[in-house]
Simulated assay, not measured.
Amino acid sequence: MQKFIALWQHRYRKYTHLLKVYLHFLKVYFKIILLKIRFLGKRKVVAIVLTQQFGDIVAGEPISRQIRAQHPEDYILWIVKPIFKELLTNNPNLDGIIEEFCANQRRLLINSGIFDVLYNLQFRNNSYCSICDTYVENPVADAKNITIRNYYFQGNLLMVQQKIAGMPTDDLAPNLFVTEAHRTKVNSLQLPDKYLVVHCQSAQNSRNWDSTKWETLINYLLEKTDYHIVEIGLSSDLRISDKRYINLCGKLNLLETGEVIRRAKLFIGIDSGPAHLANAVGTYGVIMIGKLEDFVNHIPYSGKYKSGENALILRNTEGPSAEIPVDDVIKALHQHNLIPFSHQLS
């Protein structure tokens, strides 16, 4: 009986989900039909497909400028997961945003032919709905032999997107569209004038230092400088009781986090979404990057993080960034005079 109940619960969830997929698809489809009727053929409907990860979306912001330059009078939409919508809401190069319900809904939209021009920048590996058991292919990327296995051999994240879209591979720094509301929220936090931001955890464990390393580094910075340390991210497992340590994990949205980083003297973190925020807001970054699959000396960033003008990349070419020693970070901070210390290393 338990197996029978479990089977029908699974079927109920699946078929309810599928019904919602088609309802969401039809809602967007007919909305675009109405747009086309209103435009009377004078404007094309252009879609950009990049639904996740949020670092990829921040890195890819310049492509919206390039696509707008290619389609100055057309109606440009960006398909994105609802959780990342805020990154695009105030982008002046977009006319609208389509919130993705699931990858299968996106597949239906792409295959419907409703868009006059489509820039699909999403790889197959992060285009899967487990409930629908459906992948979304990207034949354009496949035809250009750009896959999840080789994309960093093609350049940074923006350059990969530009190549898939057929855009010029210009090295453009990303923008972040912070509003007065975001600045007001950060003002309400009453942060100190002098602080550093750290980001300690990503969704990929191989990139993460363990908490002991972060605690060692942060305690060293608290002891040897007069800066406050602000931790950002979704959650924290650090045990630091110093009054100059401020834990903002889970308390801010993405653009508020970007504004906190913008006001910081320095950003120290792993290669993850907040590092892209730091690049976009122009805060100097110390970024730890390790070997990733077959990628050894890859650089995810464009602009001044790519050139090294506004970032110091600490690499582990033999393994993951999780294995980078704390002493390497401390020595780099001293050697590059990134912040004033109360003493210098002997």
Rank of each mutant, 00 (worst) to 15 (best):
I330E: 10
G303M: 14
I246R: 01
N297S: 15
G258Y: 05
L191S: 14
K194F: 06
G290I: 00
A280F: 11
I313V: 13
I232Q: 02
H199V: 06
R263H: 11
A332I: 12
D271I: 01
Y220M: 08
D226P: 08
E256K: 05
I330S: 06
L252M: 13
Q201R: 15
E256L: 12
G269T: 07
N316P: 13
G233Q: 03
I324Q: 09
E323A: 15
D271H: 07
S307I: 03
L238P: 07
C200N: 08
N208C: 11
K243C: 11
L254I: 14
E318P: 08
H334M: 14
L314M: 11
S302Q: 06
G290Q: 01
P274M: 04
T283P: 11
V260N: 11
L277H: 01
N253P: 09
G273S: 06
K243T: 10
V230H: 01
I232W: 00
E293N: 13
L238K: 09
L333M: 04
K291I: 03
P300I: 02
P274E: 01
D210K: 03
S302M: 05
W209K: 05
R239K: 10
S206D: 10
L217H: 07
K306Q: 14
H298Q: 13
H334Q: 12
P300E: 04
I218K: 00
V260D: 10
I240E: 11
R239G: 03
V326R: 02
I268N: 00
H334S: 14
K243M: 09
I289M: 03
D210F: 06
A311T: 05
D271A: 12
Y284Q: 05
K265Q: 15
S236F: 05
L252W: 11
S321V: 00
I246F: 01
H199N: 14
E293P: 08
Q201H: 13
I313P: 12
S321Q: 02
P325G: 14
H276W: 00
W214I: 00
R239Q: 07
I268R: 00
E223A: 14
L191Y: 13
Y220S: 10
A264E: 01
I229H: 01
K265S: 15
A332R: 07
I232T: 12
E323D: 13
M288D: 08
R315H: 13
V326T: 14
G269H: 05
V197I: 14
A275D: 06
Y305C: 12
K194C: 09
L292W: 13
N279Y: 12
L234R: 08
A311F: 03
L196E: 06
H228A: 09
A311M: 08
G290D: 00
E318C: 04
S272Y: 07
I218N: 06
K291Q: 09
S235W: 08
R207W: 04
Q204C: 09
P320K: 00
L252N: 15
H199D: 06
K306N: 14
L292Q: 07
K306C: 10
T225K: 02
G290K: 01
N279T: 13
Y301D: 10
Y301A: 03
G258T: 06
H199M: 11
I218S: 06
S202K: 09
L238N: 06
S302T: 03
H276M: 00
W209H: 10
K291E: 10
C200I: 02
T257D: 07
Y245L: 02
A280E: 04
K251C: 10
R263N: 15
